[in-house]
Amino acid sequence: MSAVLEVTGLRKVYEGGGRRVEAVGGLDFTVPAGQLACLVGPSGCGKTTLLKCVAGLMRPTSGSVRLAGEPVTEPPPDMAVVFQEYGRSLFAWLSVADNVALPLKEKGVPRARRAELVRRALADVGLSDAAGAHPWQLSGGMQQRVAIARAIAYEPRVLLMDEPFAAVDAQTRAELEDLIRGLWQRLGVTVLFVTHDIDEAVYLGQRVLVLSASPTRVQDDLAVDLPDRRDQLTTRGDVRFTELRARVYARVQAAKRGERPAPDPSAPPAPAPR
């Protein structure tokens, strides 16, 4: 499989207000087409920053992001983002169905097909009954699902999700996890999924990238060698699942303590600190 997403030497330094924060400190990784990769890392380590750079919403300080070989300088077509601040990413003046339909309209999807996509996406996230409601009439978890429905109705080739299940209850969360896996398998979409939840990362992903504390680097990159057919009971009871979870947990703890990733002899030398 060819790499659809290549992140090379990505650095992002926030400057302003007399503060200088190096959020992302030299990231290198590639994601092959059709992979479901999960990113875990401690809070404030730069996950959202990374995702925004990948989405073309923010210019990195140095380094580059390439999508299908093309450098990303602006939001590319065929990419959808589910933002961490899901509530603020919905149009309060539009109904739920119109929120989902708006990007499709802008993309030029014909009316009948649009209606079908909206109907199906809302059914997928269990919100068929809420189509006519306004976002502020829904609970936080339901708003989150509207944002997810909007992203999947868009039928992107690359889907970026920033802690999309943070506001939903455990039961809905399990359902949405299976929904994302189902959609991923059905649509062949490449998914970059940010989460705090180690269990979720291992359950969902084909691969888990553990990020270090800010300025973030790749602390660990492990393949999740669980069977492709997963279900909440048997997969989570699997011995291999427990092993993987323990390993990711240990790496995240190490990242929180501020341990730097072991220098990779094959990697280019890090720039000397000034």
């Binding site: 919403l57 077509p77 959808a80 933002f83 603020r88 149009f91 990007p103 993309k107």
Partner: peptide
């Protein structure tokens, strides 16, 4: 966040003016 949402779904020009800027 809403402005970023519009950018990432490539909603621009008149639609952006009408559905994002003037409405909000």
């Amino acid at each position: 966040v809403l402005a970023d949402t519009c950018r990432s779904y490539r909603i621009s020009g008149f639609t952006r003016l009408r559905t994002l800027v003037l409405r909000s």
